[in-house]
Design a protein around this nucleic acid. Structure first.
Lengths: 219, 219
DNA sequence: ATAATGAATATTGTATTCAAAATTCAAGTC
DNA sequence: GACTTGAATTTTGAATACAATATTCATTAT
């Protein structure tokens, strides 16, 4: 019996963490919104115990703000948060680029190249939603190629905080074209397995992305 | 009424997180050790609710390993963990050095210089414990000078995982002398506010430290 | 003797209850 | 009318109770 057939079981709080995180990142729960334990328990039909455990985890992730005896709110994304996250994310992006080049397989590069082409098609067709999805998928695959769960987890946590601003960042046409061009360069570096170059490109790409978010944030 | 006189109140789970983290890092709880909820509740005289919340936080920090329906154990520090944490910590060290040079005040530099001198005295007197304490304090102050809570929090989390190995890492006399020399260079870069240089020095210093831990880990 | 089975026990996951603090809001004061 | 004051209500923090799962261990069969 070679194949593992273990039945994946999840606890309620784990499930709640995922669902709440998703709701926050997708904007179903607005920044600053009060998170009433009672309401959320009603919504998910669970008791307060697992819900509260989930809220604490999300607070540690920076998505929720917990104030003792006053409950939870969805964390706001301020300009200061962005400025703070930026140097950290930049450093992590650079590392992930370097590590990815060390470990990535040809098959993985092909997969990314395919996604990239599809993403460019999305760009040409002006399909922003599909573009975003493939874009994110590409970045995720590069991160996976770094073969470093600790790094992935940190990136995931940080980008989760910022991804919330994604939909508000109404990318200009020029910025969008630039982003696509940056992705071309990223793919080239990846194919060449040039870690240092890829790291720098990813960092620069991030800087531009954050600038877009920043612009949107100051309205 | 300018002075804030708010009475700091803590919740039990926050307190528990701190105490358990301390116990794990200081080795009071051994790696791999089973963490019985019942026993811990008895030890701290609290109910399971806040204790379980604390365990989940620590699991997210990587200090505790939670398996559904099977309870918690103190996370083991493996060679793989170390190799994984290294590039991430290196990148963060470099950033913290750069940011610290941008923001640090003269008073802060003087404070660090003073601690440094005391630490060198500890080294000369062979006082390992006092040396470690001042050493850690210095690194903490540099991190504080970076004025970036996100960065601090991440560094704290990662170094917490590794600091557990501190007592097992029986630093050789040569390595100790090297570390002191590295600290001299670090202080110089800080005084010169040369961020790039400080970043590189901190990263190299970390690499050496991790090498010591690695040596101890493979016995 | 060893391995397998299943009842007894212990431990974990979740719900509920109780206690403490914050919020709301109506009544009273300046 | 705006600002306190304090009781009623709501909400949160922690403890307990209950349910589900895992572990232990004696029993049985091979």
């Amino acid at each position: 019996m070679p194949m593992s057939a273990a039945i994946p079981r999840r606890t309620l709080h784990d499930e709640l963490v995922d669902r709440l995180r998703h709701m926050i990142i997708e904007g179903d729960l607005a920044p600053g919104e009060k998170l009433s334990e009672k309401d959320l328990c009603g919504h998910f039909d669970v008791s307060r115990t697992p819900l509260r455990e989930a809220l604490k985890i999300l607070a540690k992730d920076g998505l929720v703000r917990l104030i003792p005896n006053r409950g939870a709110t969805v964390a706001k994304l301020t300009l200061a948060d962005l400025e703070e996250a930026f140097p950290v994310m930049g450093a992590l992006e650079a590392v992930s680029g370097e590590l990815a080049c060390l470990h990535i397989t040809d098959a993985e590069i092909m997969r990314i190249a395919k996604l990239h082409d599809e993403m460019v098609d999305n760009f040409r067709a002006g399909e922003l939603g599909a573009y975003f999805q493939r874009n994110e998928r590409i970045h995720q695959l590069i991160l996976d190629a770094a073969r470093n769960p600790t790094l992935s987890e940190m990136q995931r946590g940080l980008s989760g905080r910022i991804r919330r601003a994604r939909y508000m960042a109404n990318m200009s046409a020029e910025r969008w074209a630039e982003a696509v061009a940056e992705h071309e360069a990223i793919l080239d570096a990846l194919k060449a397995r040039d870690g240092a170059r890829l790291g720098k490109l990813l960092k620069a790409h991030l800087a531009n992305k954050l600038q877009t978010v920043r612009d949107a944030l100051v309205e």
